[in-house]
Write a protein that binds this DNA or RNA. Structure first.
Lengths: 111, 111
DNA sequence: GTTATCTGTTACCTAAAGGATACCGATTAC
DNA sequence: GTAATCGGTATCCTTTAGGTAACAGATAAC
C-alpha cells in the first residue's frame, strides 16, 4: 500500500538525489570518470564542456565528496580527477539510467 | 576494458535518459503517479508545483508516452493522469535514485 | 445572483543554468 | 622570440527553468 507518508518520503529521496547529481553534466562526468581518472583538459575534450562550467561542476562534486582532485608534480603541472568510493555507490543509478537510455533510443529509432 | 567508444556510448545513453526525465519535476511526478492515478489539482497540491509548470511538465510527459491524460465526464469535469506501461520501465531508475537518496540523507544527517 | 470548484492558460517576471571567448602564469619545445 | 601545453578564472551573454497572479469556461451549491 501507498500511504501519503511513503509518497512524501519517496519524493524527498528523489529530490535529494537530484540535488547532488542533477543538472546537465554531473552524471555524464561521473560516467566518464568511472572508466578511469582524467585530467581537466581531457574531461573538457571528451565531454565538450566549456572550462568555466567544467570547473564549477568539478568543484561542486568535490564538495559533495564524489570526486578527488590531485595536483601532480609534473611539468607543466597536471591535475587528476578521480571518483571516490562514495561515488561508486551511484553505480546503480548510472546503470539503471544507461540501460533505460539505451532501450529508449532503440525504441525511438525503431519507431 | 573501457574504450573511448564505450565511454561515448555511455555518455549518450545517460544524456538520452536525462532528455526525457531530466529537470526538476518529472521524476517527482512519476514517483507520485507510480502510487496511483491523480487529478491535476491533486498533483499540484501534493508536489507543490505551480499550475503553469505542472501543465507544461504533464504535456511533455504525455508527448513522450510516459503518462496518459483522461478527461472524466463528471461535474465538474475532472482529468486523471496515470503512468503508461512504458513509464513502468523507469522503475529501475526510480528505485536506484530512491535508495541512493535515502542513504545519502542518512549519511549527511549522521555526520 | 454570488461564490466556489475544477482544469488549465496567459502574461509577466526573476533567477539560475549554461555557453563563448579571452586571458593568466608557468613551462617546454622549436 | 614564438608557439603550444597545462589548469583554470574573468567577463560577457543567451537560454531555460521556474514562479506569481490573474483569469477563462463550465458547473454546482447557496
Amino acid at each position: 500500500m501507498h500511504t501519503k507518508e511513503t509518497c512524501q518520503r519517496s519524493m524527498l529521496a528523489i529530490k535529494d538525489t537530484m540535488d547532488v547529481v542533477g543538472g546537465k553534466w554531473k552524471l555524464v562526468l561521473i560516467t566518464v570518470l568511472m572508466s578511469g581518472k582524467r585530467r581537466f583538459k581531457e574531461l573538457s575534450r571528451e565531454t565538450g564542456i566549456s572550462p568555466r562550467i567544467l570547473s564549477k561542476e568539478l568543484q561542486e562534486m568535490e564538495m559533495n565528496g564524489l570526486i578527488t582532485r590531485t595536483v601532480c608534480d609534473t611539468r607543466p603541472i597536471t591535475v587528476e580527477y578521480a571518483i571516490t568510493p562514495y561515488c561508486e555507490t551511484l553505480k546503480g543509478v548510472l546503470e539503471a539510467m544507461y540501460d533505460w537510455g539505451t532501450k529508449h533510443r532503440e525504441k525511438i529509432i525503431g519507431s
